[in-house]
Nucleic acid binder design. Structure first.
Lengths: 216, 216
DNA sequence: ATTGTTGCATAACGGCGATATGTTTAGCAC
DNA sequence: GTGCTAAACATATCGCCGTTATGCAACAAT
């Protein structure tokens, strides 16, 4: 059992999924790129499904890392917007992976187990904590925190999947819809419209400020 | 060119997709069930993708029929909730079809064209009209109607896809999240919380009333 | 009647996931 | 060192897939 081959196979599969999409994932192709035979996929992962499962777990971990990497500011509502941005950007950066993770993109009989989905639900913990902060700060109404967190997740997921599916065309594309969508939900959660708008806009400015040094 | 064979193939494909999922869709299986050969799929649809495309178009039409079949009441906000219910119920009744339509469930290299997606966007026309009514009735703020309609669509789509993916588990399943999600968005659109809650609840009672004679 | 076209059956091709069957290698008791 | 065992991997094969090529019967037009 060579742990290097194990990781190499996952990385190659992830790269193939990212660059050429689900239909590029085949045992023969992966084995060829790894310089081994198709049997490696079976000895290490029990088959194609097992390998895809590992790639999906990797995707969940990456998503979780992106979300926990969001630094909290003094404005919890702005933090929520930052969380949404991080979530959306991660999905847009890895569209095929996101589809397999949440879209149930049925690739050659692969399907997630309840265990896999449990990883996906951890996505919510960051959001729940943020909603709790918003409530504690008096910005959101003292409603069911889990409900509100789910609403944020659902809306962002819906936006992302429709965007990935090509259903949000310019001029009303995902970018133009993201902020008003968040503001509407925040107002629905009890925040004042002007305050929510300010928080969301400030989160955008913060992102732009952080990205500009990298672009320059 | 037998138009009956044409329709029979589509119906069989749709039935297979509905009952056994995407992986049951194969030219050989469909041809066997239709009592013909695999060539029929190619003479009529040019290949598997063409057949799937017809099934998807059928799905869009069925969705549109479900949405336009929603009778408008005296309360446009309740109408919006009824629209959302019809959308969700249609998706839950045809989960595999919905995945192919919007989830980009990559089955054997099939992918939607911009023309296909245009059909999907017609989904919005019912919603846009309903939002316009809500604004006209003074229930929603006089904001961008297209934005609000998109928000409704996005949220309902997000709820449905997460539900289909198995990510909304009891006790916070799709059923428990549907109404608060709608209320939050309606409040975000400018409606008063108590009024929105009443409208959504009345829409649920209306549905229950209409379904009870069928159940008995 | 002949010709061309259409509709579909049959067979074949390349590629897929998966399995069966070697073959080679690694670890280890002695 | 030798011999044994088990794992890692290669090769070949099976059944299924979408697709294409080929053949053939029915029919239309001339």
């Amino acid at each position: 059992m060579d742990p290097r081959t194990h990781t190499v196979l996952i990385e190659i599969a992830a790269a193939l999924l990212a660059t050429e999409g689900p239909q590029a994932l085949s045992t023969r192709r992966i084995a060829a790129e790894a310089g081994t035979s198709t049997m490696a996929v079976y000895t290490y992962f029990g088959g194609m499904s097992g390998l895809v499962r590992e790639v999906v777990h990797e995707g969940f971990q990456r998503l979780e890392r992106h979300l926990t990497a969001v630094r909290s500011t003094s404005d919890p509502v702005a933090d929520m917007a930052l969380l949404g941005r991080a979530y959306r950007m991660n999905a847009l950066a890895n569209p095929h992976l996101y589809s397999v993770m949440f879209g149930g993109a049925s690739l050659s009989g692969f399907s997630l187990t309840d265990d896999d989905r449990q990883h996906g639900r951890y996505t919510l913990t960051s959001v729940v904590e943020c909603v709790a902060k918003c409530v504690a700060a008096g910005r959101f109404a003292d409603a069911d925190v889990a409900h509100v967190a789910h609403q944020m997740w659902i809306a962002t997921h819906g936006l992302v999947t429709l965007e990935l599916g090509g259903y949000l065309a310019a001029p009303l594309d995902g970018e133009a819809l993201f902020e008003p969508q968040l503001v509407a939900l925040m107002v629905g959660a009890g925040d004042r419209p002007d305050a929510a708008t300010r928080s969301v806009r400030s989160s955008r400015r913060r992102i732009e400020r952080e990205l500009s040094p990298q672009a320059g």
